[in-house]
Every structure is written in structure tokens, then in C-alpha cells.
Design a protein around this nucleic acid. Structure first.
Lengths: 93, 93
DNA sequence: AGTATAGGCAAGTCTGGACTTGCCTGTCAA
DNA sequence: TTGACAGGCAAGTCCAGACTTGCCTATACT
């Protein structure tokens, strides 16, 4: 729970999730390129790698290593805990 | 969007939301007491006040001043943006 | 073998934000 | 009008975490 909320608190990590939703199974280098091109994020490869670690720890990204590549998938299931915790039926004042 | 994600990233603020869901319309002092008693949070009044500002800015808390009291209500509507942005249908690897 | 590619590790820097302290304002009751 | 109570403002401390730099490992290709 804490991990998930922390994970989506960063704008770069939210952009990573957006990217993976749009195209699943990307590698680290692929993500770096697309984040720079389409999201205007100029962070280094290591920065993105560290973000992916956080997202993985939160369960929002699932990674699998194959040979020298590591592919990443989006997993939205942990997000359910948020709306499950707080009923989103907006109460009027 | 950024405001909402930042707001729920803090454990104390999440506890405040929990408190307000459980009992709407609390004042600052009331919240301080309950957070200490039931959530083991020993932050100062000012700390809680600052957290409430953040939650208010994110739209997750709606406050109304009446005389010398200020009452707070929970509003879950902004949370919808999260599940709207990322489809929570967990994709299998 | 050698080289390029994909990624990991481990420092170190530096800024945002959580929290405190101290004082001030405004509201109500005696 | 004096005091207690509810809350706000502002400056300062301090640490988590975002980011970089530099080097290392492992896999593939020729």
C-alpha cells in the first residue's frame, strides 16, 4: 500500500506506467528513448532503472530477464487497493 | 493529478483520510486527538494542519470555516483519476 | 579471441518536503 | 475586557529520495 502510493507519487514513474500501458514488454533502453522523445524526460538510464526498481517493488511493473534483455510489463492490480480503501463516491459538503 | 498522487504518498495524510472517512466533519484539534489515539501519530498540530492544506489543495478534503471552528470532509472524487488513467485489469506476463 | 550491447552496483550530491518552534490573529464565554 | 480556545503564519532544521558519475558484469555477434 505504502509502496504503491509512493510509486505513483513521482511524475517520471507515472510517465513510465503510461508508456508501458501504451506498449507492453519494453526494455530499459527502449523506455529511455521513448520517455525522452514523447514525454520530454531527459533522465539518465540509471535514473530510469531506479524508477523501475521502485515500480517493481510496488508490484506495478513486472519484469522478466531474457538473455541480456529485461522486459517490463504493466500491472494495474495493486492500484485497486487505493479505491478499495477510500470509497470514491464523492460526498458533497 | 500530480497533487492527488503526492497527497496520498504520505502515511500520515492517508491516516487523516481514513479518519475522515470514518467520521466526517472533524476539526483540526479533533483530528489531532484521534490520530494520536487510534493511529499512533504523534505529530504536532501544525504538522497536521499542513497535511490538511495539502489534502485540500488536492481536492481530497473539503474544509469549511464556521466561527472559530474549521470542519473537514473527505472527498474521494479526485481518486477516480488514478484508475481512469491506468486500467486496473491486471495483465498477466 | 575481441567488441559492442544491455544492464547492474555503489558511491556522492542536492533539493523538496515533513516537522518543529515561536509568535500572531480571530472567536467566544465569563 | 480578559482569558481560554481554535487556528494561521513564518522561519529554520533535517532527512528521504531523485539524480548523477564512474566502474563493473553478462550476454551476444563476428
Amino acid at each position: 500500500m505504502d509502496d504503491v502510493c509512493q510509486a505513483i507519487a513521482d511524475a517520471t514513474r507515472r510517465a513510465i506506467l503510461d508508456e508501458l500501458v501504451q506498449r507492453d514488454g519494453q526494455t530499459l533502453f527502449e523506455l529511455c528513448g521513448r520517455l525522452t522523445m514523447k514525454h520530454g524526460i531527459g533522465s539518465s538510464r540509471q535514473a530510469i532503472s531506479q524508477h523501475l526498481e521502485v515500480l517493481e517493488a510496488a508490484g506495478l511493473v513486472i519484469a522478466k530477464r531474457e538473455g541480456r534483455y529485461k522486459f517490463h510489463w504493466f500491472n494495474g492490480e495493486p492500484l485497486k487497493a487505493i479505491t478499495r480503501r477510500w470509497p470514491a463516491n464523492g460526498r458533497r459538503s
